[in-house]
Every structure is written in structure tokens, then in C-alpha cells.
């Protein structure tokens, strides 16, 4: 079938735009693979067992490992979760399960959403003003950077995320479950604890794990709260190390050996996040399939 010149030009334009869209997708995927690939490539060459087991030596030519920082990140994330998970989950329950209080929950939902968009550096500064300065005044220390302050800043980021994912997961639980339970004479809290929460358990756990992954990769909130440390410490009252802070210090520093460590540390962090993301996705997909059948 022959087309007029104008018509065939439109077909060509459409095919061209189609190709551009495909190319955009390809470009985005390529950038991702470039970033991840480069980090993996350089990082892998610096990866060693020592990285995971030894602490900094103070010698710039032979800087040791990042054991302290890995421990530090784990402790910080767990501390933040101890505060963030209960508060976040309870707030999520509030947003989802008390529709009669919509005059309160509506604005709260919006605030939680907006809070997820606050720049993390601003959270760090708030942490400094709220958790470092007053403590310094109380203890008459010069400046009381501490693991607790760092964990507090991370919890600040975590709470709104956990609250909103919890809410969304609870909303997926069919209404009929709640009504069935209430119809049998169960109280509201019994219904929530015995029927609604178990029904959404998988989804909520997934959300919590992803939020923990998210804060494990944060740097800016820790700059002026945990501050970082080159010591292996498990005392959160002291300035506290974290993987991200250590990577930042090493990467922006002048010593090549430390820069290599930064690459390797980044690879460790990324591998952790990748496994976390993939695992959560597989589990979620399996659960979704299980629900259908």
C-alpha cells in the first residue's frame, strides 16, 4: 500500500520516536550498569578478607580494614530500627485502621509523605541541633557527637517511610477480614492484632527491611551527629563509625590506598543492598503468587 509523502513522514516520525524511547530505556539501564559495574570492578580488586575483619591502622600506605565501620552501620541501623519500627508501624496502623479519625489521619498522611521528601542533610542538621547541642550542654562536654544522635537522625528518616508502607500494606487486607472478625464479637485491637496485622505481615516486613537498607546507605544525616570514628566501638554514647562516613572520608582524602578502600567499602554496601532488594522482591512475588492460588 503506497502512502502519501506526508503520511509516510508521520510513520517515520513515529518509528523515530519509538526508537528514541527504546534508546532512553537503554541509556538508563546502561548508566546503572556503568555505575554498578565500575564500582564492582574496582571494588572487587581491592576487596579482601582483611577489609571485613581489621580496623584502621593509622598508616596511610597500609590503612587496614573497615570492620569498625561495618559494625558501626549495623549498630546504627538496629538502634534506629528499635525506635523507628514501633513508632512507624503504630503510626501506619493509625493511618489505616481508624478511618473515623480521618480529620486527623488525613493531614498526618500528607505530613508523612512530605517528610519523606525532606533533604537528608537537613535531617542531619536537625539531629545536631536537637541531639548533640543539648547533650553537650547537659554533660558540659565540648561537643557530644554520639551513636545515639546518629541513630536518632536515621530513625527520623525511617519513621515516615515505615508508617506509609505499613498503611499501604494494611489497606491490602480485605475489608471482609475485619468485618468477619468484628462480627464474631472481637474488639478492634483484637481484630488488628489477630487478623489484620498477620494478614499484612509479609508486606510490612518487606517495607521495614527496605527502609533499613535505605538508612544504611545514608551519609548526610550522620555527618554532624555520629560524626564517624576510626575506632572499633560499640558504645553509642561516643562518636560512632559508619560505613558511609568512612567511605566518604577515604574517597575525598588524598591517599590512594584509602581511596581503594572506599571503592571496596562501597562494593560491600551495594552488594548488601542489592541482595536485600532482590530477596525482598522474590519473597514478595512468591507471597503474591501464593495469595492468588
Amino acid at each position: 500500500m503506497s502512502l502519501s509523502f506526508k503520511e509516510s513522514r508521520r510513520r517515520t516520525a513515529s518509528a523515530f520516536m519509538y526508537a528514541l524511547c527504546a534508546a532512553s530505556t537503554l541509556a538508563i539501564v546502561t548508566v546503572l550498569l556503568m555505575v554498578a559495574g565500575y564500582l564492582a570492578w574496582i571494588g572487587a580488586s581491592s576487596l579482601s578478607w582483611n577489609l571485613l575483619t581489621t580496623v584502621p591502622t593509622g598508616d596511610v600506605a597500609n590503612p587496614g580494614g573497615m570492620r569498625h565501620a561495618i559494625d558501626g552501620t549495623i549498630v546504627l541501623v538496629l538502634l534506629a530500627a528499635m525506635l523507628g519500627v514501633p513508632l512507624g508501624v503504630l503510626a501506619g496502623i493509625y493511618l489505616s485502621e481508624y478511618p473515623e479519625e480521618a480529620r486527623l489521619t488525613g493531614p498526618l498522611r500528607f505530613i508523612a509523605d512530605v517528610l519523606t521528601g525532606v533533604p537528608s542533610i537537613v535531617v542531619g542538621i536537625l539531629g545536631y541541633e536537637l541531639l548533640v547541642v543539648p547533650v553537650s550542654r547537659l554533660t558540659e562536654n565540648s561537643i557530644s557527637f554520639s551513636g545515639f544522635a546518629g541513630a536518632g537522625a536515621l530513625a527520623f528518616i525511617m519513621i515516615p517511610i515505615v508508617a506509609r508502607t505499613t498503611e499501604e500494606m494494611l489497606r491490602l487486607v480485605p475489608r471482609s477480614y475485619r468485618e468477619g472478625s468484628l462480627a464474631l464479637g472481637a474488639t478492634r485491637s483484637q481484630t488488628i492484632f489477630r487478623v489484620v496485622l498477620p494478614g499484612a505481615f509479609g508486606g510490612i516486613t518487606t517495607g521495614i527491611v527496605l527502609a533499613m537498607g535505605r538508612i544504611a546507605g545514608e551519609t548526610a544525616p550522620l555527618l554532624f551527629t555520629a560524626l564517624g570514628s576510626r575506632l572499633l566501638t560499640h558504645d553509642p554514647r561516643q562518636p560512632f563509625p559508619s560505613l558511609t562516613l568512612q567511605i566518604y572520608t577515604y574517597a575525598t582524602g588524598p591517599y590512594p590506598e584509602q581511596r581503594r578502600l572506599a571503592w571496596a567499602g562501597m562494593l560491600v554496601l551495594l552488594a548488601l543492598l542489592f541482595v536485600l532488594n532482590l530477596a525482598v522482591r522474590i519473597v514478595a512475588a512468591r507471597q503474591a503468587r501464593g495469595r492468588l492460588h
Binding site: Y38, T219, T244, Y248, M266, L270, L273, R281
Partner: peptide
């Protein structure tokens, strides 16, 4: 592709910084 895009979103800012600085 969606998984890759979402994983890209989960990569910490610091990783892009390290990549930007060194590459």
C-alpha cells in the same frame, strides 16, 4: 527493566558520589 530502574533508585547517593569523583 523495572527492577533495574528501582534498584537504581535504591543506590545510595554516596555511591554516585564515589563514581562521580573517580570516574
Amino acid at each position: 527493566v523495572s527492577f533495574l530502574v528501582e534498584f537504581l533508585a535504591a543506590i545510595p547517593s554516596l555511591a554516585f558520589g564515589v563514581w562521580g569523583l573517580f570516574v
